[in-house]
């Protein structure tokens, strides 16, 4: 098995853990943690592919930096949404936050 395959399998494992978590978790914070896991797997996959093949290594690393920046922006917005939801509904359980309008 080549080195690239091993790195891709680790990234795939992170994706699977994140997908499992986002379906199984019952609170918004738990789902946010799962999304961060998946984004990390994506970053690892991009860097491994650009470092271990003949692809443009600068592009790969800057692409992962972009993913990290997007993850930070996404976490900020999700934090604000979670604060608003918990003020309005008193909980962040996904089963109870199911109405569009009160």
């Amino acid at each position: 098995m080549s080195a690239l395959t091993l790195y891709q399998l680790v990234a795939l494992m992170l994706l699977v853990a994140g997908l499992y978590g986002i379906v199984q978790r019952r609170s918004l914070v738990g789902m946010l943690i799962s999304v961060e896991l998946m984004l990390n797997g994506a970053g690892l996959s991009i860097v491994a592919a650009s470092q271990l093949t003949g692809a443009n290594a600068v592009l790969g690393q800057l692409g992962t930096l972009l993913v990290m920046g997007l993850a930070a922006a996404e976490a900020t917005l999700v934090l604000a949404i979670i604060v608003v939801v918990s003020r309005r509904f008193g909980t962040t359980k996904t089963s109870e936050v199911s109405t569009l309008k009160e």
């Binding site: 609170s27 918004l28 914070v29 946010l32 943690i33 961060e36 993850a71 930070a72 976490a75 900020t76 999700v78 934090l79 979670i82 604060v83 918990s86 909980t91 962040t92």
Partner: peptide, 13 residues
């Protein structure tokens, strides 16, 4: 940064 944000989310809710 991101983990501190998640921790804030845990605390605030």
């Amino acid at each position: 940064a991101v983990c501190v944000l998640v921790f804030f989310a845990v605390m605030l809710t």
